[in-house]
Amino acid sequence: MSLHPPGTVLHELALTRLIDAPRSKVFRAWTEPDLLAQWWGPNGMTTPLCEMQLWVGGLFRTVMRAPDGTEYPNQGVFLEIVAPARIVFTDAFGPGWVPSNRAFMTAVVTFEDVQGKTQYSARAWHWNAADCLAHEEMGFYRGWGESLDRLVALVTTQMPG
């Protein structure tokens, strides 16, 4: 399945980490709303809203809340779900975290089994260099990195098998 038209240049930001947990467990933490809400967002954020229609074309919607009460809504659509190996979804928001009809990025999250551990990769594909740069300047590496730290803590110490 091609997610971008032929000849499209991908503007990508990516994080990868080996997680000491089976990929089925890491995949569950990504696909069960109650679990995702426990780790989604940078340090200090909560996720009071997490909705998933876990099928191709289904809705993916979250609201992150900062300690000062500011809310950051995200919405998107699942483009591909291959359990327990891959999730692809759009994320649509505009400046000021205002939901948008235009996808800001396509997120490609993969879970590869490596001797009982999970090689985790999260890639954000952007349609143009300006969106990629804007996402990086918004704190992609810090925000997604802190979320990943929280995910790792959940699947390695808090979440039952």
Rank of each mutant, 00 (worst) to 15 (best):
M1S: 12
S2V: 07
H4G: 00
P5N: 09
P5E: 14
P5F: 06
P5A: 14
T8L: 07
T8K: 14
V9L: 06
H11P: 05
H11Y: 15
L15M: 11
R17F: 02
R17Y: 02
R17W: 03
L18D: 14
A21K: 03
P22R: 08
R23N: 03
R23Q: 10
K25I: 14
R28G: 01
R28E: 15
T31K: 03
D34H: 13
L35K: 05
A37Q: 11
A37I: 01
A37Y: 02
Q38M: 14
Q38N: 04
G41T: 04
N43K: 12
G44D: 12
M45T: 10
T46H: 02
T47A: 14
T47Y: 02
T47W: 01
P48D: 06
E51D: 11
E51W: 10
M52R: 10
Q53S: 13
W55K: 13
W55N: 07
V56R: 15
G57V: 09
L59V: 15
L59A: 10
R61D: 00
R65D: 01
D68W: 08
D68I: 14
G69W: 03
T70G: 02
T70S: 09
P73F: 03
G76R: 01
F78T: 01
F78D: 09
F78H: 11
V82D: 14
A83G: 01
P84R: 08
A85S: 12
R86L: 15
I87S: 12
D91P: 00
D91K: 00
A92S: 15
G96S: 05
W97C: 00
V98I: 13
P99V: 04
P99L: 11
R102Q: 12
R102M: 07
A103N: 11
V109H: 07
T110M: 10
E112F: 01
V114T: 13
Q115H: 14
K117G: 07
T118N: 01
S121K: 14
A124H: 12
A124Q: 10
H126P: 05
H126I: 05
N128I: 13
A130F: 09
D131W: 11
C132L: 08
C132W: 12
H135L: 03
E136P: 02
E137D: 06
M138F: 03
G139H: 02
Y141R: 08
Y141D: 11
R142W: 04
G145N: 10
G145K: 05
S147Y: 06
D149R: 13
D149N: 13
D149K: 06
V152P: 00
L154V: 11
T156S: 08
T156R: 08
T157S: 15
T157A: 05
